[in-house]
Design a protein around this nucleic acid. Structure first.
Lengths: 110, 110
DNA sequence: AGTCCATGCCTCAGCTCCTTAGGTATTGTT
DNA sequence: AACAATACCTAAGGAGCTGAGGCATGGACT
């Protein structure tokens, strides 16, 4: 998979996964793999910096929890995070339509 | 428009436009704008390096032409260029399906 | 004549972000 | 005891965009 394509959508995908309910880094990588049918590989070197970036921008907030002897940092969307996720999804649809316009492909969204 | 999304697809879009027939840098920017309904802005700072990159990789070949007192560098696809364009379009469709899988959106391609 | 915009090519500093590799620690499996 | 999975993090190197700049021609306007 061409990682340059993915890199433009990483933050949107992370936000979307967290929007389903508070979760933590390692689980996010697993969810992204599962929900993309194994197509995306979100590596730690891009995941954690992205999470910290989003937290610094106040799109995510986090708290540490302990379970089964594992320390996990659970993230959830802030109000601003929900807003920016919707913006990013809108942008994605416009982008996909633009690409398909150039490629001469139809693009059907429900 | 989020340029990070676009950057992952720039080479595919350039190759696709050139696949329609030999053309030159400035014209490519205009075609991309027109074919994306004005949504994409392909700036010179990303266009020319990309063209040189693709030429260096032997996906494009070029010749200089003169017309109306304008020097233009016309690019066309090599056999390898046609091949890599098809690959990139395949990758794009997988990528879009992966994104829609994560977002929980339907994705219908003809 | 002089100015400005469109056309047409190019480069480069600065920035962001990924890749690859490394570090630390616990739990479960072989 | 060793290894894989889980779970967090960081950093050097590299790739590619942004925004600005340079250079040159042709046409329009004053």
């Amino acid at each position: 998979m061409d990682s340059k394509l993915l890199s433009g959508a990483v933050e949107m995908l992370i936000l979307e996964v967290i929007a389903a309910g508070p979760t933590y880094g390692y689980q996010i990588t697993q969810d992204v793999i599962a929900r993309s049918n194994g197509y995306f590989e979100l590596t730690e070197g891009s995941l954690y910096p992205a999470l910290h970036r989003l937290e610094r921008q106040k799109f995510l907030s986090a708290d540490w929890r302990e379970a089964d002897g594992r320390r996990r940092k659970y993230y959830r969307l802030t109000a601003a995070g929900k807003k920016v996720l919707e913006q990013k999804k809108q942008e994605w649809q416009q982008f996909a339509r633009g690409v398909h316009g150039v490629l001469g492909l139809p693009y059907v969204m429900a």
